[in-house]
Amino acid sequence: MTRRLPARRPTIKDIARRAGVSESAVSFALNGRPGVSATTRERVRRVAEQLGWRPSTAARALSGEGTATVGLVLARPARTLGVESFFLQLVSGIQEALAERSFGLLFQLVEDVRAECAVHRRWWAERRVDGVLVVDPREDDPRYELLAALGLPAVIVGAPAGPLPPTGAAISTLWADDAAAMAAVVGHLHALGHRRITHIAGLPGLAHTRRRIASLRAEADRRGLRHTASVITDYSDAQGAEATHRVLAAPHPPTALVYDNDVMAVAGLAAAGRRGLSVPGDLSIVAWDDSVLCRATHPPLTALSRDTAAFGRRAARHLLALLDGAPPVCVLADPLRLEPRGSTAGVLQDGS
């Protein structure tokens, strides 16, 4: 069996030979530099197209033309991402917007923010990306100062906790109001008669986790709810199920659970069933970030909904605008909508 060799990429020398011009003339023509006639320029570009030639990313970076690539580093445990739909939809939207400009997306998964900062430094030193998208803002986040010092354009997806990105840095922010969303959930459950509400939260260091916890406490204080709490997890189905079993085994268990993602909510629904509880007869459940998982369960889960792919497209377009020289912006995204479904129902007030 004859081994098939990989196709060789066309080079500037190939274009010059086919077009009947010098290699320097090809370089001038393809880079839009003076020194060749309009006729020669058109002939060179036509031959390049016929041969399927594309500029080398490394060569573009070294010449200062950019890489036509943006980066995204995700500092989360890999085991928590297997079936969570939020990031898949987010990346889908990002890629859709980048494809409109023939930009690529360079993605890397790391263990923590320190490792993420190291990746950003390496990408900057190697001229691998023109800018980056930054997700999961944290308390005392070191990434803003680093990106500002490197001069690497960025969009922060989510509201920063603490100090904003340094003034003058090419860093935009696109965020959703998690506090208002939690207030809407508590209002919905309170109207149904629930007075014991537990929030099965995600990673504790994330800014949006802290905002959701703070909003739950504020709403509980405002409404006189004495039995509300937040329980920290790693976003995984395993920890979501374990937390559900733990809180439902308490002497005065909650009548409603709010989960920080769809995966934990579905795991919680199953855990409640294993304890002999019916949803929504004995327990109401609300999920953050609606997905096909929420709609495919029985009963379907009440969820906070948004167009996550559109959120990703918007983030990518803000980054492309920065690369085009636009000033940085801070933009509030459309609010999350609560979609009541079969997993929430009224309860008798028990005075607690």
Results as ranks from 00 to 15, higher is better:
A19I: 07
S215F: 00
A184N: 01
S24Y: 13
L304M: 06
S278V: 12
S352T: 15
A179C: 08
S278G: 15
D234R: 13
L301I: 14
A345S: 07
L189Y: 01
A61Q: 05
L320R: 09
H188Y: 02
D178L: 03
R210C: 06
V91A: 15
H208L: 04
A271I: 09
A201E: 02
F28A: 13
A249C: 10
D282T: 08
V292A: 15
L90M: 12
T228G: 01
L98R: 12
L106S: 01
R275Y: 05
W288T: 08
R3D: 14
A309K: 10
S278R: 15
L147G: 05
D237T: 14
T255H: 02
R196D: 01
A48V: 09
S37D: 03
R128T: 11
V231S: 01
H188L: 06
R127Y: 02
G66F: 02
R210K: 10
I156N: 02
S172N: 07
V331K: 08
R79A: 15
G64D: 09
G346C: 08
H298Y: 13
Q239G: 14
E65G: 13
Q349M: 11
V286T: 09
E96G: 14
H120V: 12
K13M: 10
R222C: 10
R226N: 12
R79G: 11
R212V: 07
V231M: 05
W175Y: 06
D237M: 13
P6R: 03
H318K: 09
A38R: 11
A270Y: 10
L51C: 00
E139M: 03
I197M: 09
G351T: 06
P328H: 04
T244H: 06
A303L: 00
D221N: 12
H188C: 04
I12V: 15
R313Q: 10
Q108N: 14
L283S: 06
A250Q: 14
L293I: 11
S56P: 00
R217E: 14
L336E: 03
A265L: 12
L277W: 02
E42R: 05
A68G: 11
V135W: 01
G187Y: 01
R223A: 06
L301S: 12
G151Y: 05
R121V: 12
R196F: 07
D141Q: 06
S236V: 13
G351P: 06
T2P: 15
L74Y: 04
R211I: 08
S85W: 13
A333W: 02
H199S: 03
A29D: 00
T344I: 01
M1V: 14
S291V: 12
V83C: 04
V247W: 01
V83S: 13
N261Y: 04
L109E: 03
E96V: 12
I94R: 02
V157L: 03
Y259N: 08
C294D: 12
C330G: 08
A59S: 10
D140F: 04
A315S: 01
N261D: 11
D237A: 15
L51I: 07
L62A: 11
V263C: 10
V113I: 15
E49P: 00
L30C: 13
G71I: 03
R211Q: 06
V155D: 08
A180V: 12
A68W: 10
G104S: 03
L98Q: 14
L62C: 10
P160Y: 05
L269R: 03
G276W: 09
G342F: 12
V347R: 05
R8M: 08
A326W: 05
S22Q: 01
R210Y: 07
S92Q: 15
P160F: 00
L301W: 11
E139Q: 00
G32Q: 04
A99D: 14
